[in-house]
Design a binder for these strands. Structure first.
Length: 157
DNA sequence: GCCAACGTTGGC
DNA sequence: GCCAACGTTGGC
């Protein structure tokens, strides 16, 4: 039997949005540019077909707007090796990569985006890491939390 | 635009 | 190895 895990990734829509993901070839994007060790470690735990909540941050109504799936497991984030890239980091080299990324594929839009505000007030979601560690851009979600959020996103509250 | 939270850097 | 300074994120 296969088990998969659940995650939440955050993105500022002005940089890369849910719509951008859906518009990508095969609805698939490299989740590059993560430069935080804890987030990196979580990405290295991600497995094929793990489920991902896609969250829009730094907007008036931050919210989970869709679901995605991991289609490629952790591999070196080569943008760290490109001096002109905004995510360049000289401490990472092809021989000794420091940063990793995964590929995710957009799966399902949530017709009723699940706002941060509603997450705060929904029983069962009060322990979400999002509420305590708002700055962590890749974080685990429990199966129970996943279920509640996807249900809310599909049918509203 | 402000500010709190918090991760990272660097001097010692 | 400590800790102050600094930078970044993200909610409001």
């Amino acid at each position: 039997m296969t088990t998969h895990r659940y995650w939440l990734v955050k993105s500022e829509p002005s940089g890369f949005s849910w719509a951008d993901l859906l518009a990508s070839p095969d609805r698939t994007a490299e989740w590059d540019g993560v430069r935080n060790f804890q987030a990196r470690n979580y990405m290295r735990e991600m497995k094929l077909r793990d489920q991902v909540l896609f969250y829009h941050s730094s907007i008036p109504q931050p919210a989970v707007v869709g679901t995605a799936v991991v289609v490629r497991e952790g591999y070196p984030d080569f943008t760290a090796w490109e001096p002109k890239n905004i995510h360049f980091d000289p401490k990472s080299t092809p021989e000794k990569p420091l940063w990793y990324m995964v590929d995710i594929q957009g799966k399902e839009a949530l017709p009723y985006p699940v706002t941060l505000e509603s997450i705060k007030h929904t029983p069962g979601l009060e322990k979400m890491m999002l509420l305590q560690r708002s700055r962590l851009s890749v974080q685990p979600v429990t199966a129970a939390e996943w279920k509640i959020i996807v249900a809310l996103g599909k049918q509203g509250s």
